[in-house]
């Protein structure tokens, strides 16, 4: 599939556009003033409020021990083979706390809960930033009917811009092939603009934040 010809053709048409110089915006817009509202009262509370406003669940834990207790409680209705986890670190944590789960490929299609880590949390928009880097990969982000995300409090940033900047810093040698900002469970409003949760991705999204 040779396309060198088309490339040159397109580019030269752009270069030779028989048009007067584009009037660049005479004055550059104000780039320092805020366009988004402040984070109040603090990043953690803001994140929780925002995530809950888009039908996500946010559970705050003070310690790893409390996190284990909370997980055990919310997972009580699910049998071990219905809980799937590919992340080595989280798997160790679950093992240590006697929370059953599966890593068997055979259980992948029938899982009900998928547990993953994340890159960042964005306070202003209630977003969870995930990537294809790490043990979970792409499928665990989107396939589980219920998605559990474990995050540390220090992964929280204020705005989308901050998360993008941190991502570029963290992956200075090259970004993961996929980075996604997830804000709530999958949704659609394609039928009469009626909101339905659980279109193709998770029907429920739980974010557990621990210190």
């Amino acid at each position: 599939m040779i396309n060198a010809g088309s490339k040159q053709e397109i580019l030269s048409r752009i270069k030779n556009a028989k048009r007067q110089e584009i009037p660049l915006e005479l004055e550059l817009p104000d780039l320092s003033s805020a366009i988004y509202k402040d984070i109040i009262p603090d990043a953690l509370a803001c994140f929780k409020t925002e995530l809950e406003s888009v039908a996500g669940n946010c559970i705050l834990c003070h310690s790893e021990n409390q996190l284990a207790d909370v997980l055990r409680e919310v997972l009580i209705d699910y049998k071990g083979e219905k809980i799937f986890c590919k992340d080595t670190e989280i798997a160790q944590f679950l093992d240590k706390n006697n929370i059953p789960f599966s890593t068997q490929t055979a259980d992948f299609n029938t899982m009900q809960v998928g547990i993953t880590a994340c890159e960042f949390l964005v306070a202003r928009t209630g977003s969870v930033v995930v990537s294809s880097h790490g043990d979970s990969g792409r499928q665990m982000i989107i396939f589980p009917p219920i998605h559990f995300v474990l995050a540390k409090k220090n992964q929280l940033v204020n705005y989308v811009e901050d998360a993008l900047l941190f991502l570029q810093k963290k992956y200075a040698d090259g970004m993961p092939s996929l980075v996604s900002f997830i804000s709530g469970p999958s949704r659609t409003a394609d039928i009469e603009k009626t909101l339905v949760l659980g279109a193709h991705g998770p029907k429920k999204l739980y974010v557990f934040i621990y210190e």
Partner: peptide, 22 residues
């Protein structure tokens, strides 16, 4: 009318050598 759309993804290529899927 959403504050941010549910999934905003950035793709920078096929599966990388150290990645598990894609």
């Amino acid at each position: 009318g959403q504050q941010i759309t549910n999934y905003n993804s950035i793709f920078t290529g096929p599966r990388k050598k150290n990645e598990v899927d894609g």
